Computed example of a mutant assay.
Amino acid sequence: MKLSQLTASRKGRVALAVIPVTVAISVLLGGVAQGAVPVSFAISGSQFKISADLLEGTGFSQYAGLATAEDGSQHPTAIANIGQANLYNLCQSVVQDTPLGKVGLLISAGTAEGAPATATDLQIGMNDLQGTAVFSNIRIGVDASTVSTGAKGDAGDFAMDSDSITIDNLKQVSWSTQASVFQLTDLSLKVTDGQECF
């Protein structure tokens, strides 16, 4: 195989493995919108970064979970659910080491003023979150099986929920993201040599 073909093939695999916002997502994950238990899927084993200047959401819950890779390895995560979310100046990046060096995928959306990226039934499996958060009518210590969102955790697990959430200067490291609908206004997708959101 020629070097140019190897490069294209490898970059193509990176893109296919990490883009959670393709057109097919609304079809594949439609069950989330029906209030079903969160959809389970094998993660790639690669973490990715998400940032936004501002996240505004309604219908929020959070509880502990596990992300399982195809090889069976499990990663503890915080599962966050948001019924409706607006993300201003959204960025998502993933970087993988390849025989040709670092190859990355950088996605941006919601960059125009007054036109954020939007998500319905957003669920994120993360292990690091930074930002300044404000919760409305928060409940801490509820049973994960009784949270106010359609997606729920296991009975007996510790959880929290709130009517709404606002996070300024959002930065998070995640294993998975899914939504019943993810609308990316002003979408830009670039293959990079390792550039990340933060």
Rank of each mutant, 00 (worst) to 15 (best):
S4K: 06
L6F: 08
T7I: 06
S9G: 02
R13G: 03
L16P: 08
L16Q: 11
A17D: 15
T22F: 07
L29M: 11
L29I: 07
G31H: 04
G35A: 05
V37P: 06
P38A: 04
S40R: 13
F41T: 03
A42Q: 12
F48L: 08
S51Y: 04
A52V: 02
A69H: 02
Q74M: 05
I82K: 11
L87W: 06
L87M: 14
V94L: 08
V94Q: 13
D97S: 11
D97R: 08
P99T: 04
G101K: 12
G101D: 06
A112F: 12
E113Q: 05
A119S: 10
L122K: 02
L122W: 13
Q123H: 10
I124H: 09
N127C: 10
D128T: 07
Q130L: 04
G131P: 01
A133R: 01
F135D: 07
I138T: 11
R139M: 02
V142A: 06
D143L: 04
V147L: 05
V147K: 05
G156N: 12
F158K: 01
S164E: 09
T166R: 08
I167V: 12
Q172D: 03
V173C: 03
V173K: 13
S174K: 01
W175Y: 14
W175I: 06
V181F: 04
F182Q: 08
Q183H: 10
L184V: 14
L184N: 00
S188V: 03
V191R: 11
V191I: 14
V191F: 07
G194V: 05
